[in-house]
Write a protein that binds this DNA or RNA. Structure first.
Length: 197
DNA sequence: CTCTCGATGTTCT
DNA sequence: GAACATCGAGAGG
């Protein structure tokens, strides 16, 4: 079952937590489907979160975040890497969840050829997983509730005892209370969770 | 293992 | 012109 719209319309922290364990499915133009289990997420919570792109108002880049929940927000960072996010909350509330790491489930050979790196470095970071699943800006705005070319398939939830939380990574430009906010979620002991430099 | 550096292009000031 | 929700290579311990 592909997760429906109302899942994404919940509060962003709820969505970020509940996405752990769910399966990200990417259907390639060739017809092959690549699948990864979500093991790390971060919440970006709208205009009051100084780490969120939308905190400086609506722009051409962040426009999808202001739209309907359940759509993909993809952008280019450092001129090299793509970030994959999922829009949350009601329309007009510019929030999203960044997918930071996956555990590869299916299509691992294809992921390796897209990345040119060993298994442990296929999907353990936001730029890495985007490359392994051929996700980039041309998919910005697609509706994930269609399930094609991207969808999230329901899978068993991760138990509370397996979930860890902490500050988000790579947001040193934000103000101190937003840097400190424990809005990163990951599956404890999973080897595909990313690490701060 | 850790650290530093450079890549590369879009976005916003 | 600066900054950027990052990554990989290479040097050193």
């Amino acid at each position: 079952m592909i997760l429906p719209r109302d899942f994404y319309q919940q509060p962003t922290l709820t969505v970020a937590r509940q996405l752990l364990g769910q399966r990200l499915c990417r259907r390639l133009p060739s017809g092959e489907t690549l699948v990864g289990r979500i093991v790390e997420t971060e919440a970006y919570i709208g205009s009051t979160d100084s780490a969120c792109h939308a905190s400086k108002g609506r722009t051409a880049r962040n426009g999808v975040m202001f739209g309907e929940a359940g759509h993909a927000y993809l952008y280019l960072i450092y001129g090299l890497y793509s970030m994959f996010n999922i829009v949350t909350e009601p329309e007009g509330s510019p929030c999203a969840v960044l997918i930071r790491a996956l555990e590869p489930i299916a299509g691992i050979d294809t992921m390796q050829s897209l990345r040119g790196q060993p298994l442990r470095q296929l999907t353990n970071g936001p730029g890495r997983l985007a490359q392994a699943l051929a996700l980039d800006r041309h998919l910005n705005g697609v509706d994930l509730t269609d399930g094609d070319p991207i969808g999230i398939e329901a899978a068993p939830a991760v138990a509370e005892s397996e979930v860890a939380t902490g500050p988000r990574i790579g947001i040193g430009y934000a103000n101190p209370q937003d840097i400190a906010a424990p809005w990163r979620f990951w599956v404890k002991t999973n080897p595909f969770v990313s690490k701060p430099r």
